[in-house]
Structure formats: C-alpha cells, structure tokens
Design a protein around this nucleic acid. Structure first.
Lengths: 135, 135
DNA sequence: TCAACCTTGACACATCCGTGGTAAGGTTGG
DNA sequence: CCAACCTTACCACGGATGTGTCAAGGTTGA
C-alpha cells in the first residue's frame, strides 16, 4: 500500500477524519478504496486536501462554493447562464439611451433562455417577456 | 417616476417584497432610491429579477452561489486560485508516471500560493510542502 | 390632509452546513 | 487470531439561508 488511511491523511493535512468523509460526500475529493472498502489517500489527494484548506481559509469559502465552482467548469450551460446574468447585472452602460434599456436587457435574457432551453427542453422563449407596466 | 415601487416590482417579477429586500442585502440587485428612501425598480432591475428567478429555479442555486459567481468575476486573484485548484483536482493525467505525481501536484500548488501571496503578504511558500510519509 | 404604501428592525421557523460524537459491525496486518 | 483501525448510519448543535409576519414610524400623491 503506497497510500494513507483516513486517519493518517487527516493528521498530515490538518483535517479531521470526519471532514475527510464530508469532503468526499461533497464531491470535492474522492480517494480510491481498498478491497475491503477503506479509503486510500495518495500524494495527489493529500496535496489537494492541503490546497483545499488554503482556499477555504484564505478566501473564507464554504465547500459548497468550491463545489459550485467545479460545477461551473463542467456544466457549460450553467456557465453560459451565469455569463448572461453577469452581463445583465454588470454596469448598465450609461451611453445606452434609457429608451433602449429594456431591449438591451431583453436581448441578454433571450440569449440566456435560448442557451438554456437548447440543452433542456425546446421551450421556445415563452411568455416570460411581457410588457412592463410603467404605471 | 418611471420606476416601480417594491410591491409593484414584486408582483410582476413573482418575488415577494421581502425577498426583494433580501436580494438587495445579498448584493445581487440594488435599485435606486427615491428622495424619501423608497426603492425604485427600473426596467433593468425588473429584467434582472426575472433572470435571477430563472437561474435559481432552473439550476437550483442559492443566492449565495450566484453572489459567489459574481465575486469570481471581480476578484481575479480568487479566480486564479480556483483555477489552480481545479487543475489539481481535474483528472490526474494517467500518462504522468506515478513517481512524478507529487511534483506535478506541488507545481500546481506552488502556482496557487505564488498567485495568492503576490496579492496579500509576501509569505514565501513556507513549510506547506513537506515530505509525505508513505508509511 | 390622509389613506395607502414604504422603511428598518425584530421575532419566528424550517432547512442546510460544518463538525463532533457514538454505535454496530467489517478489515488489516503483525 | 486479535488489537487497532475502518465503514456506514445516526443524534446533536450552533450558525447561516430563505421566507413570513408584525410593529413603529416616515413618504407619496391625489
């Protein structure tokens, strides 16, 4: 065996065995298993565990947020949706005349919907974009 | 006034006034204010509120996660750190001979530390990378 | 002026998240 | 074979999230 058991891995990475299992359930680091089902941590896992601690403490992140970042990498559709959202949220260009704001926003929204719909069901931009009562 | 009050905005975006205030506190959508302090939602905000609902429901995200994505955009250092983490976590290339795994991982880790340290304090890759007891 | 609406702040509550235990039972290796 | 370690499955618990409601007081606009 060229790998450590959970307790040994925990000691040298400064996590608790409990947390190592939790981290695994969170999908962040999934070690190999022995025949009998024991978790086996190799050098790679150990390094990732240390790096994980760095991330969590230095940037005050939760495991959920790191998992979300991983999801953003793997799920292009999600990444595209976040892209659209971010552009819509980013500074509304002051050089766009007020009368055009709505169209601008709607374009962004349409892009998002199209992107998302393309990968789920062919829901063709339904009644989500109605008139906005300016009262 | 070419903008809606919180109650009107809530109705047409299908959020509750309570949640609109919550979303604002979360830093996701911050509407203008009237002289007297009333929140004023313009077309842009309304569109973003609808898009936000799309994101949250379609991808089952929390406001925190969306806020984290925004943070990832603005904070290059954080983005770099996540980059490094992700590469380290990504499938360990099987063509890298076992004996080199550790070095490979350490390189990634060093990059992360360098990147991060460069922007915080000049902590020169301290004793974080020690020998790994292979017991 | 005054009804209708807004603001902040606080209490409430169900549900996660991050952690630590403990129990019952299987695995390892000297 | 057997002590030492591991596994899964629970209970617990403080803190954060998401959401509602209520109170006390200010703003708006016809």
């Amino acid at each position: 065996m060229d790998a450590l058991t959970i307790q040994e891995a925990a000691q040298i990475t400064d996590w608790s065995p409990r947390m190592l299992r939790y981290i695994e359930r969170a999908g962040l680091i999934e070690p190999q298993r022995s025949e009998g089902g024991y978790r086996l941590y190799g050098p790679g896992e150990l390094q990732r565990l240390r790096t994980l601690r760095e991330l969590v403490t230095r940037y005050d992140l939760g495991l959920g947020e790191i998992g979300f970042a991983m999801r953003l990498r793997r799920d292009e559709e999600l990444a595209g949706a976040m892209d659209a959202w971010f552009q819509a949220v980013a500074r509304r260009p002051d050089d766009v005349p007020p009368a055009d704001w709505l169209r601008w926003e709607q374009d962004k929204h349409s892009k998002l919907l199209a992107l998302a719909a393309a990968h789920t069901r062919p829901e063709p931009t339904s009644g989500l974009i109605e008139e906005i009562p300016t009262q």
